[in-house]
């Protein structure tokens, strides 16, 4: 090939990809990550129950879990899952402009979630070494979910960039996989939101 002038257009097309592989792999991975967080939530609830049964308060002195931030985070994630579905739908219809707007908006919302979460952590006042293990559990759960969201954000940015560079013309499977991952992330947050932030 060296030295020859070869057009990409003249090259044989890439063989088609087998559909659904990426989607199933993504679903398995995201469900596994989600179950890891569920397991931590189980430990959290068990410990909380043990502490309450002894007549003590669950949240240690000085720690606070306000409601507005977790609620806004939940709303942000819900909206982002809608915009991502919009992006995948637009790509399926080859409506690139709408797809770019939707994917960009989703990434922005995901970033907004990360900012809100870090703000919540900064005001929570939860010490990691709280005497009954509350801090360890709180940070493990919320930190793991934040890591899951950051993973999703990276996935989103990757598919958005690929879409911008012309990929997903035949099948938006990559974007759909990102949407699958994101939906599971939102579902996991719903559990964390209720178990950790609402019931406290």
């Amino acid at each position: 090939m060296a030295g020859s002038v070869v057009s990409v257009a003249a090259a044989p097309p890439a063989p088609p990809q087998r559909p659904r592989t990426l989607l199933v792999g993504t679903a398995l991975t995201a469900c596994t990550m989600g179950f890891a967080i569920f397991s931590m939530v189980g430990l959290y609830l068990a410990r909380r129950s043990d502490v309450l049964n002894t007549g003590q308060k669950w949240l240690p002195k000085g720690a606070v879990i306000p409601l507005p931030q977790p609620n806004m985070m939940f709303v942000t994630l819900l909206i982002s899952s809608v915009t991502l579905a919009w992006g995948a739908y637009a790509l399926r219809r080859n409506d690139r402009r709408n797809a770019y707007v939707a994917l960009g908006l989703t990434a922005l919302l995901a970033f907004a979630y990360v900012v809100q979460a870090t703000y919540l952590f900064s005001i929570s006042g939860m010490a990691v070494d709280a005497s009954a293990g509350q801090g360890v559990l709180f940070w493990a759960i919320s930190g793991s979910h934040l890591a899951m969201v950051i993973g999703g954000l990276a996935f989103l940015l990757l598919v958005t960039l690929r879409a911008l560079f012309g990929s997903y013309r035949q099948s938006p499977e990559g974007v759909t996989a990102a949407a699958v991952y994101w939906s599971i992330t939102v579902g996991v947050y719903a559990v964390v939101w209720y178990a950790v932030y609402i019931t406290k």
Binding site: V5, S7, P13, Q17, G166, R169, Q170, S171
Partner: peptide
């Protein structure tokens, strides 16, 4: 080798 233009990533079904 010169790349002249982009191309759809897979064969047209």
């Amino acid at each position: 080798m010169t790349v002249t233009e982009s191309k759809p990533e897979t064969v047209v079904p």
